[in-house]
Design a protein around this nucleic acid. Structure first.
Lengths: 346, 346
DNA sequence: GATCCGGATGTGCACGTTCACATCGCTGTC
DNA sequence: GACAGCGATGTGAACGTGCACATCCGGATC
């Protein structure tokens, strides 16, 4: 005598209703925590659900309510620590609110690749979109394709067509640079990220502001690609000139590659050159020398992004957006500038 | 004279049909690439879709076909390089097949946390599940909750109730250990991962096999938690004993923390102690000293997982599962054992 | 020239849920 | 004691799509 619901199809709200001897609507009410249900009835319905191993069908619910309970994440470089951490935090926060997360990675940063990823997400009927590690182009495509759902970016973009978390990358970068200046460095090079990345641009801006404030001469920044390999390459080029005493790298990976190149060239960090990174990835405090960097709370950033987005989706009251200011963490890769004949005066 | 479809509701297949002067079924056929449609009719329908900015409603489609075109990913430690890379690869591969990816992270590895994440994914009506960086417990919970969809694990679990990629961690770990033995090391310590992790257990097994084969004495392995911080802690403890000449760490992060501790204690790597890691994260080749490690192609692993899973989902012919064998990468953190009075003999 | 066949298209229903509205019985009020 | 009001429940329709089946038309077959 096997249970009768073995007919291939999953049990529906109506099967539950039949077993509990109520109408399908009553079952629906139990599901949605409707107030006016007699406790006794509710209990009977829950019992029936348990017996039948009932699971609500989200497709059906989405169809009728046109709410998918899903948010999309558009991510670039999702394999690196920062974005990956934020994605995980987003997933956590979304789950807490009963939301699902659908991720699309930007393998390819061409407009076509971007449009493709967005199109993919839109097929899923997402209610909102979080854009991670964004590039300027992404927002242009996004604006052009009028997706019809609110979206949040993890970095201030300056655009007015969407919400953005204010992570004050400019201040973070400025503090990093000021730290070097405070140690007496006057010849500082910036190893930047790709300039179509919003955060790369912001970090460069912070650097330039600090240099400008201190009235120092400007070395042309080097445009990198965020990778440790590029850091190494850039370092190899830099050692040929040796017209600097410190480098501010736009992220930790590049900083680590950079230090490797300096080491290979016989330069001591921080004895000969000071290096500052950005992000404070977990290994930053363990590499040799330990890396002075700027800490970002990626987890908190992810959480806030979801809060902001869902707030917007549900259209309730405006949430206050507080600035997140990254924090300088001083470690062993920076030191006062070496006193040398040529660099003492002025 | 604004377009007439501004009535709030998104255009449906029927709106398109009306505009193209065909039946809704014809539109459906165009959508699904049905063969018997006159090119002229198809064109007219496509035109109408374009005009109305029509987008198929996935919820409706899922409801009627009971295929969600979505796979789930259950991930632990998704913020680290390996899992994050595999997740990105999974997303890519799935997207190529028109599939969406829904991720749930295991913040908390308690059975309740695991069950919660699985339940969350099941609500989404996924067609299959990829389990990343799995712990033994996950599969127990998974087996117990009889989710009714195929799932694939990224590591061989030895269980028979699901598919698994064969990434031969055991061989990888054995090669790492043999490399140390080949350099003359006889006192080798293993800094392992948590033993409820399948890959940690496999790496430990490879280590033990190599030690056993070489008939060396066994140092009790240290059980870590994968983090660089723990590596540092373990290293600080180890330097008090100094009864070893090499350490094989179960992943690169711990290896980096370890080297930091040795450095702080005045030990030279590889002069006094050799260190091997596992994974070959991008910074491994840039830290000081550059880290000898075992390379894993996380991207390929992710791709194969999707291929295997979708193959299972569609029930076509069995796919051949080829072993992926990780590759030893020798760098600067390992060297022949130092010749010292006590260790020359034997 | 009647018949059959297959290509091209249309008709109605089903999927599982929620929404709007209807119904029923009980309580309290004047 | 009639009636409003409300709590508890039921009824039917709708959401947008795909499937099974029906229909229509033109050409090939004998």
């Amino acid at each position: 005598m096997s249970p009768p619901q073995d007919r291939g199809r999953a049990p529906s709200i109506r099967d539950v209703a039949r077993l509990a001897e109520v109408s399908h609507q009553t079952v629906s009410r139990v599901l949605n925590d409707h107030p006016s249900i007699r406790p006794e009835t509710r209990e009977r319905v829950l019992q029936a659900m348990e017996t039948l191993q009932y699971r609500p069908n989200r497709a059906a619910r989405t169809l009728v309510t046109s709410r998918s309970n899903t948010i999309g994440v558009l991510a670039a470089l999702s394999t690196t620590y920062g974005p990956a951490t934020s994605i995980a935090a987003i997933e956590d926060a979304a789950r807490e609110q009963g939301y699902h997360v659908n991720t699309a990675n930007l393998a390819d940063t061409s407009p076509a690749g971007i449009a493709d990823a967005i199109e993919h997400l839109m097929l899923q009927a997402i209610e909102g979109l979080v854009v991670i590690a964004p590039q300027v182009r992404v927002f242009e495509v996004l604006a052009a394709s009028s997706i019809g759902v609110p979206f949040v970016s993890l970095q201030s973009t300056g655009r007015r067509d969407h919400l953005a978390l204010s992570v004050d990358q400019v201040t973070g970068a400025r503090r990093a640079t000021q730290h070097l200046i405070g140690l007496g460095h006057r010849e500082i090079v910036h190893l930047a990220g790709p300039q179509d990345w919003i955060e790369a641009e912001a970090r460069m801006r912070g650097f330039l502001e600090a240099i400008d404030d201190a009235e120092l001469g400007l070395h042309p920044p080097i445009l990198g690609d965020w990778t440790a390999d590029f850091g190494y390459y850039a370092g190899s080029e830099l050692v040929r000139r040796r017209d600097f005493t410190a480098v501010f790298a736009a992220n930790d990976e590049m900083a680590i590659g950079l230090m490797h190149a300096f080491r290979d060239a016989g330069l001591d960090v921080p004895g000969d050159v000071s290096v500052v990174g950005f992000d404070d990835i977990p290994v930053a405090k363990h590499v040799a020398p330990t890396l002075t960097t700027v800490y970002q709370d990626f987890h908190e950033i992810g959480r806030r992004a979801v809060a902001l987005l869902l707030n917007q989706v549900h259209g309730t009251e405006r949430i206050e957006v507080e600035d997140i200011v990254p924090r300088l963490v001083v470690r062993g890769s920076t030191a006062p500038v070496a006193v040398r004949p040529a660099s003492v005066a002025r």
